[in-house]
Design a protein around this nucleic acid. Structure first.
Length: 280
DNA sequence: ATAAGGCCCTGACCGC
DNA sequence: TGCGGTCAGGGCCTTA
């Protein structure tokens, strides 16, 4: 499940492959993959455009094409983008094919079909709901405190809300809450300023290390498993303190990690390190 | 405005 | 072995 560090890794590895390349043809196999414009218009409009700039915003990849177009890609759960030889046959999960001018193609594959692509001249409209970048100057402890203050939703649910902070998903929300020693079911409005400050720092530390290690590759199902565009796994899964460690001893206090459901998401925490109530 | 629940999808997994 | 049911999960939409 690609979150900010995985998307950052994706873009870093795709950029050198795509820089300067031009799209010579486009095929949309599953039209609903294209969020904007309609699939036929997308395929028609993207033909002939070249890749110029590469940016990330939250979990979105922004491919700056010839002015004024931006190709936006959100991988959601199981989306993958890979540069392959042009004669590579599409499999049953390949939904979009962009042929490049160097004898290769960019394949978008997505078993769950949740991911979406946009071709737009106004990317800010697509990204309008996003909150600040967690590693940017716009993300401050005070700003986070304003957004969670007074809220009656769990802090876990609030961290998953992309309008509060962009790019944090299920893995890094759990890991950041552990780092800050905050129980995930605590209500946003119950957090003291010092706790919010710790959470703010925890989010940044977890994401920064995860980017350095090229994200998290989870074992088990090939469907869920994130791998980098070059096929290599990330390295942050070995740093997980709570995520998918249900029943295993906490590295800090030894108590078994618990799993609960919050906001319809698996949530992992240490009952010893993350007490349900703030300690005065 | 906020909180909660449904929906989209399909491979993996479980119990019989 | 085969089959049906359940689950996971990001973001958007609807409902209250």
């Amino acid at each position: 499940m690609p979150e900010l560090p995985e998307v950052e890794t994706y873009l870093a590895e795709l950029a050198p492959e795509l820089q300067g390349r031009r799209i010579t043809a486009a095929e949309v196999v599953w039209p609903r993959t294209i969020a904007q414009p309609a699939a036929p218009a997308f395929a028609d409009a993207i033909r002939g455009l070249g890749f110029e700039r590469f940016e990330r915003r939250g979990k979105y990849m922004l491919f700056g094409l010839d002015d004024p177009f931006t190709l936006i890609v959100h991988l959601r759960m199981t989306g993958k983008l890979q540069v392959v030889p042009a004669d590579t046959p599409r499999d049953k999960h390949t939904h979009v094919i962009l042929d490049l001018d160097d004898g290769r193609s960019l394949h978008y594959r997505d078993p769950r079909k949740f991911g979406r692509l946009w071709l737009t001249g106004a990317p800010d409209q697509v990204l309008a709901r996003l909150g600040p970048e967690p590693l940017g100057e716009g993300f401050t402890s005070e700003g986070l405190a304003r957004k969670v203050g007074g809220r009656q939703a769990s802090i876990k649910a609030l961290l998953l809300d992309q309008s509060i902070v962009a790019g944090v998903g299920n893995i890094y929300a759990d890991e950041a809450l552990f780092k800050a020693r905050i129980h995930p079911a605590r209500l946003g409005g119950s957090l003291a300023a010092a706790e919010v400050a710790g959470l703010h720092a925890g989010i940044r530390e977890v994401l920064t290390l995860a980017i350095t290690l090229n994200g998290s590759s989870l074992g088990g199902s090939a469907l869920q498993n994130y791998v980098r565009p070059n096929g290599m796994p990330g390295g942050f899964q070995d740093q997980h303190k709570v995520f998918r460690r249900t029943g295993q001893p906490c590295f800090v206090c030894g108590q078994p990690i618990q799993r609960i459901i919050l906001a319809q998401r698996s949530t992992h925490f240490c009952p010893g390190c993350q007490p349900a109530h703030a300690t005065p």
